[in-house]
Every structure is written in structure tokens, then in C-alpha cells.
């Protein structure tokens, strides 16, 4: 049975699209047929992060409006088998999304795919609501800082009130926490919230902790999901998160600052 996962956060700039690209690619790498949908109508970015912006002809909104078939709009990833991207429109706005239109497309995708990953826009308005309405799972992307945590708390409330599962009194949406841009050194100095603090407020299961890493920006700029960079700690952390999502028990890594060798300390002191 196909599952719909919504990547959401409330707050902007926390790494939803980066996480959608990495997590979706991670699922496909594990052999699941996966489709990532960009719900950020008017601020199209997923195709850039996935490196398929040069191949967009039709988009999500064209399919909703019946101007193109789903098969014409889906873009197959060239690197990973089983991975597809449904880009959105840059020239429209969120009003182009309708609950029925989105539902119809998701139903169609459910016949073909194992996982459908909805990359939500920021905010709690129409775009975000459309992205979360049909969700079976919600991955809440949070940075270890107070405003992000507060917005995540807010979006959790929205999911619990306004999703289809909530409206129809079904089993609630399964919530997962993904802490991104985590910098163990700054946490140690008290400049950033600890994972425990975030968990205490949000009180949902922890799916993964993605360390702040230059590999993320680098991967974004070349249009490659960071999970494909298996040498980077961020890439490995996303791989772990996918494993945990699929039910594996994997210990959290990259929480403590890396042990500095004698030479490192010496160099830092003189630098």
C-alpha cells in the first residue's frame, strides 16, 4: 500500500526541500518506487536541488488543470532507479492547488508508487495545507533554535486538526522529527538547542539528526541530493534516517563534536 509522506516545518529555510530530495532519494536507493512532489507553487526549487530543472516541460499544476497527463509531467531521475520528480509551476501561486485536484493526482500516483513524498512550502496557509491534507506520515523538519521549534509545534497542531486523517477520524498521521543543521560544537557552547530540548517540546519520535555540513550547500548547488554524497556526514545521516523510517534500529550519529587530535588543537591555537 502506497504511503504519502509530507515534509513540512512551518518555518522557512530550515531544509525541507533539501530533506525531501535526500530522503526521497534514500527511499529509492533502498528499492522503493518513490515520487517527490514540489508543493511550493510559485517558488519552484525541488527541480534545482534534484538537478532536473533542464528537463521540465509540464508541471504539477498542468496535471491538476488537465492540461497534461501525469506521465508527461513526471521526470525520471537519471542517477537513481525508481525515483521520479513532479515539479511545480513557477508562474502560478498556491491558489492553483485544489484539494480534489491534489487528491486525484495522489490517488493516481498511489497505483504506481510505494512512497509519495510531498515537499511542503513554508507557512501554514493553503500550500502547506494542501501538502499535508492527504498525508499518512509527516516528517517535521526543525532547526535547533527556538523559533523553528515553535513553528514546528504549530504545524503539528495543524496536522492534528486539518489533515484528512483528522477530519475523517482515522488513525492519526504518523509524526517524525528530523533535526537539521545541527552543530554539535555550538550546542556544546550553549548557542544552539540540544536535541533533548527540542524533543521535550515537540514530543514526537526522532527520525534523525542531520549535522550542519558544507556538503549540503555544495550538493544543492550542483543539483545532487546530499544522500548521494556518502562520504559526507550529512549524507550518511539522511541514509540513517531513511533506515529508521523503514523500521531499522540505527544509533544516532554526529551528535557529539568530533574529537580533535593533538595536531588539530595545535593548529587551531596558532591560526
Amino acid at each position: 500500500m502506497a504511503k504519502i509522506i509530507t515534509m513540512t516545518s512551518g518555518k522557512g529555510g530550515v531544509g525541507k526541500t533539501t530533506s525531501s530530495a535526500a530522503f526521497g532519494t534514500g527511499l529509492a536507493l533502498r528499492g522503493f518506487k518513490t515520487c517527490i512532489i514540489d508543493f511550493d507553487v510559485g517558488l519552484r526549487n525541488l527541480d534545482l536541488i534534484m538537478g532536473c530543472e533542464r528537463r521540465v516541460v509540464f508541471d504539477f499544476i498542468n496535471v491538476i488543470n488537465g492540461e497534461a497527463r501525469l506521465s508527461q509531467a513526471l521526470i525520471k531521475d537519471k542517477r537513481v532507479e525508481n525515483l521520479y520528480i513532479l515539479p511545480t509551476s513557477q508562474t502560478r501561486d498556491k491558489d492553483a492547488l485544489t484539494q480534489e485536484g491534489v487528491g486525484k493526482i495522489l490517488d493516481e500516483l498511489k497505483k504506481e508508487f510505494d512512497y509519495i513524498l510531498c515537499d511542503s512550502p513554508a507557512g501554514i496557509e493553503k500550500g502547506a495545507l494542501m501538502a499535508l491534507y492527504w498525508a499518512d506520515h509527516a516528517i517535521i523538519v526543525t532547526n535547533p533554535e527556538v523559533s523553528s521549534v515553535r513553528d514546528s509545534d504549530r504545524i503539528l497542531g495543524v496536522i492534528q486538526a486539518k489533515s484528512r486523517r483528522a477530519e475523517q477520524g482515522l488513525e492519526p498521521v504518523k509524526e517524525h522529527l528530523l533535526v537539521t543543521r545541527y552543530d554539535p560544537e555550538r550546542v556544546e557552547k550553549g548557542e544552539m538547542l540540544k536535541v533533548e530540548d527540542v524533543l521535550e517540546i515537540l514530543a514526537i519520535p526522532l527520525l534523525g539528526i542531520i549535522p550542519e555540513s558544507p556538503a549540503v550547500l555544495k550538493a544543492s548547488n550542483v543539483g545532487m541530493p546530499v544522500v548521494l554524497d556518502d562520504k559526507s556526514n550529512a549524507g550518511q545521516a539522511y541514509g540513517d534516517a531513511v533506515g529508521r523510517f523503514l523500521g531499522e534500529t540505527i544509533e544516532h550519529r554526529f551528535i557529539k563534536p568530533e574529537k580533535k587530535g593533538f595536531l588539530d588543537r595545535l593548529l587551531r591555537r596558532t591560526a
Binding site: 516541460v57 509540464f58 499544476i61 498542468n62 509551476s89 502560478r92
Partner: peptide, 12 residues
């Protein structure tokens, strides 16, 4: 506001 036209319409 555009014209309500879409690229798909143009293409088709």
C-alpha cells in the same frame, strides 16, 4: 496575474 493561459495550452 497573467492571462490564465498556461504553457500546456500553448504547447497543445
Amino acid at each position: 496575474a497573467g492571462t490564465g493561459r498556461s504553457p500546456a495550452q500553448g504547447l497543445a
